[in-house]
Simulated assay, not measured.
Amino acid sequence: MLLSRASLAFLLSALVVAVPAFATTTHKKSSTTHARSAHHALRSTSASSKSRHKKLHGQQGIAPERATAIQQALIREHYLSGEPTGQWDSSTVAAMQKFQADQGWQTKLMPDSRALKKLGLGPDYSNAINANGSSFADPKAASEIPAAQASGFASASGVNR
Rank of each mutant, 00 (worst) to 15 (best):
H78L: 02
S155C: 02
E83L: 01
G61S: 14
T32Y: 04
L109F: 07
H34T: 12
A69Y: 00
L3G: 13
A128M: 05
A142N: 08
L11W: 15
D112W: 04
P20Q: 08
L80Q: 00
K108I: 13
S44W: 13
L2P: 15
S37L: 11
K108Y: 12
L12E: 01
K140T: 11
Q103E: 04
G82T: 09
S90Y: 05
I62P: 00
E144D: 06
F10K: 09
Q149F: 06
N132F: 08
I75L: 01
G58M: 08
R52V: 06
T92S: 13
G158P: 07
G86Q: 02
G122L: 04
A94K: 12
S157L: 14
T68I: 12
I75W: 00
V17C: 03
A41C: 06
N130G: 08
A141F: 11
H39G: 03
S44Y: 10
A23W: 07
K98R: 15
R76A: 12
T85N: 07
T26M: 03
F22V: 14
T25F: 10
A150R: 12
S51N: 07
R161P: 10
Q59N: 05
H39L: 09
G152P: 11
T68Q: 15
S113Y: 09
D138M: 10
R5W: 12
M110Y: 06
S81D: 02
T92D: 01
Q149G: 02
K117T: 11
L15A: 08
S13G: 07
Q87Y: 08
S44P: 03
F22A: 14
S13E: 11
A73D: 00
K117I: 08
K98V: 02
F10A: 08
P111N: 13
T25K: 05
P84I: 01
V159H: 10
S31D: 14
A67L: 03
A18H: 12
T33V: 11
K54P: 02
P84D: 01
S157Y: 02
G122H: 07
N130F: 07
F153C: 07
P139N: 09
D124C: 03
F22G: 06
A141T: 04
A9V: 14
A101C: 14
Q106T: 05
G120L: 00
P111S: 09
V19F: 11
T26Y: 14
V93L: 03
F10Q: 03
R66D: 03
K118E: 03
A154L: 08
G152S: 06
N127H: 12
H34E: 09
Q100A: 09
R76H: 15
Q59L: 04
T85V: 09
L116A: 04
S7I: 14
R66W: 03
S48R: 14
K29D: 15
T33L: 06
G158R: 09
A14I: 13
P123I: 11
S81C: 06
V159W: 03
G120Q: 10
F153N: 09
N130H: 05
G120Y: 00
A94R: 06
W105D: 01
Y79N: 01
I145V: 05
Q60N: 02
F136Q: 09
I145T: 11
K54N: 08
L8A: 13
T45W: 07
A69G: 02
D102G: 07
W105Q: 04
L15C: 11
N160F: 13
S7A: 10
G158S: 05
V93I: 15
S90H: 13
R114C: 04
T107I: 04
Q106I: 15
D112I: 15
H40V: 06
D89C: 02
R114F: 09
K54F: 15
